[in-house]
Design a protein around this nucleic acid. Structure first.
Length: 492
RNA sequence: CGGGAAGUAGCGCAGCCCGGUAGCGCACCUGGUUUGGGACCAGGGGGUCGCAGGUUCGAAUCCUGUCUUCCCGACCA
């Protein structure tokens, strides 16, 4: 009763906050815009991280670590990148505090300890990494370099929201160097595919792969590829990006290599990243008014078992059977928690694990034991069934798969129902203010028109889908000719 | 940075207008009864009321300043 969740209909933003806070994923902290990721939330992130890390390694990448601080002179080397991030950088200017002579017990920044050169706290690491790569690359034999780093970055956002936009966040950033343009483009697309694979098959969130317009492109990139997801309120969320950086950073940091003909060439680059923001996407894509709904493949706890008993004698009997079940499930690679904490009662536990989105709940009492069954409840549909204890672990294993598939299908159905064509301005605005979702519409291809539409409606072009159908039409705003539809949406 | 709201016990809040013994619910501790959808009874512990000044015999309450957080917007993954 103490943990009521605001309904989606009542206040979608508050619902989201309630889920994150009451689902024990994260807390606000004493630091503006920065959150504490709690053990349960971090366990979720670890699961996501482990899967992605394995995928990166399977595609030939290695992990490394680069400094948190970037000297300003390095940071500003790639002009567009620097400009793009300049407004949101935290900057270290001093390296020492001292006691305040006028205010006992307080500290002040020691004016004597000013740095010769300011250090930028990384908002992204291209600069420090390409400065490093300069020393690693001389010949085509040194290429490709396929490196990933798991790190925290800081972007001093005006307005923050738990997981979706925090001043400090955790992410991975891949930074690769290649001898040819073709190879770099191939890498960019390959990593986009890895992201789409992960988000769809592990997080159960369907995505649209596409390319950003120049307006929405990463600062310093030639092309930004992205995966776009749809949330339950009809707003889009960019779930991951993969950038083809051309030779921009190689030129900025003077990174050249000798090819087979001993000719000097600039190196081709990519970078790609996903962040803890994915957790926000996960929460908003699947959950309901009773709490989180987590996909089994990355849920910190896949199965929770709740004993129902009166007295120690009954408890002992149930324990015995449960321990057997736990061993079986663990043997099958299922993450299971037996919650036999006697301080909370079954009803409380049911509500608690629903809030936390645990996919499968097993309740076992003496009554069940006598009938050789257990009560199995699935979080996604809230269905409850009595299932025979014989072969129960195999049943649960299968159920987890079914749940994974079901929540993906449900999210996909919602997403697909929320891609709507608009053929003129009135339709476009009507859809944005009504149904929401992605709106497929013609656009004249200019940045001016895109800006104007954003100004008028707050909708942006989320992407030009890959393998887009070419079709003649006219721009919904200007009426100028267009050769393809693009996806618009209001976005997080 | 513009607009709004809020800082009082671990959490959620009331009290403030009209100054006079700091309160409620949840959580916590002890004992008991309970346990198939967020248990109940009895007893108990815990707060320099965000911070700094001022007015006053007396300030959570009035005045001034200040800090912080959240929500909405512009910026953005």
């Amino acid at each position: 009763m103490s943990k009521e969740i605001t309904s989606r209909a009542q206040d979608y933003s508050q619902w989201y906050n309630d889920l994150v806070l009451k689902g024990s994923l994260a807390d606000y902290s004493a630091v503006r815009g920065c959150m504490v990721i709690k053990p349960y939330g971090f366990a979720l992130w670890e699961n996501m991280r482990d899967v992605l890390d394995r995928m990166f390694k399977e595609t030939g990448h290695q992990n490394a670590y680069f400094p948190l601080f970037i000297p300003k002179s390095l940071f500003e080397a790639e002009e567009k990148n620097a400009e793009g991030f300049a407004k949101e950088c935290a900057v270290v200017t001093h390296y020492r505090l001292k006691t305040d002579p006028n205010n006992k017990g307080k500290l002040i920044v020691d004016p004597e300890a000013k740095l010769e050169e300011e250090l930028v706290v990384r908002p992204t690491s291209e600069a420090i990494i390409w400065n490093t790569y300069k020393g690693w690359i001389q010949s085509y034999r040194d290429l490709p370099i396929l490196v990933n780093q798991w790190a925290n970055v800081v972007r001093w956002e005006m307005r923050t929201r738990l997981f979706l936009r925090t001043a400090e966040f955790l992410w991975q950033e891949g930074h690769t160097a290649h001898a040819t343009k073709e190879e770099a483009v191939e890498e960019t697309v390959k990593m986009l595919d890895v992201y789409a694979d992960f988000v769809e098959n592990w997080m159960a969130v369907p995505v649209i792969k596409g390319v950003k317009t120049p307006n929405e492109r990463f600062a310093g990139a030639e092309d930004t590829y992205c995966i776009e997801a749809m949330m339950q309120d009809g707003k889009a969320l960019q779930a991951g990006t993969s950038h083809f950086l051309g030779q921009n950073f190689a030129k900025a940091f003077d990174v050249k290599f000798s090819d087979k003909n001993n000719k000097l060439e600039y190196v081709w680059a990519t970078s790609w990243g996903v962040s803890t923001r994915l957790i926000g996407a996960l929460v908003m894509a699947h959950s309901d008014d009773d709490g989180l709904i987590l996909p089994p493949r990355i849920a910190p706890i896949q199965v929770v078992i709740v004993p129902i008993y009166k007295g120690e004698e009954q408890k002992a009997k149930i324990d015995e059977r449960v321990h057997q079940l736990v061993a079986e499930l663990k043997g099958m690679g299922v993450t299971v928690k037996y919650d036999d904490n006697d301080n909370t009662r079954p009803g409380w536990k049911f509500a608690e694990y629903e809030m936390k989105g645990v996919p499968v709940r097993v309740a076992l009492g003496l009554r069940d034991l006598e009938n050789n069954v257990a009560e199995i409840a699935r979080r996604d549909t809230k269905e409850k069934n009595s299932v025979s204890l014989d072969g129960l672990s195999a049943h649960i294993k299968q159920l987890l798969e079914d749940i994974q598939q079901n929540i993906f299908n449900k999210a996909k159905q919602y997403r697909d129902e929320h891609i709507t064509p608009a053929n003129n301005w009135d339709e476009f605005v009507g859809l944005l203010d009504g149904k929401g979702g992605f709106i497929s519409a013609h656009w004249d291809g200019t940045a001016e028109t895109e800006d104007k539409i954003k100004e008028l409606t707050k909708a942006t072009i989320r992407c030009i889908p890959l393998n887009n159908v070419q079709e003649e039409g006219v721009c919904i705003l200007t009426g100028k000719p267009s050769s393809q539809r693009v996806l618009f949406a209001r976005a997080y």
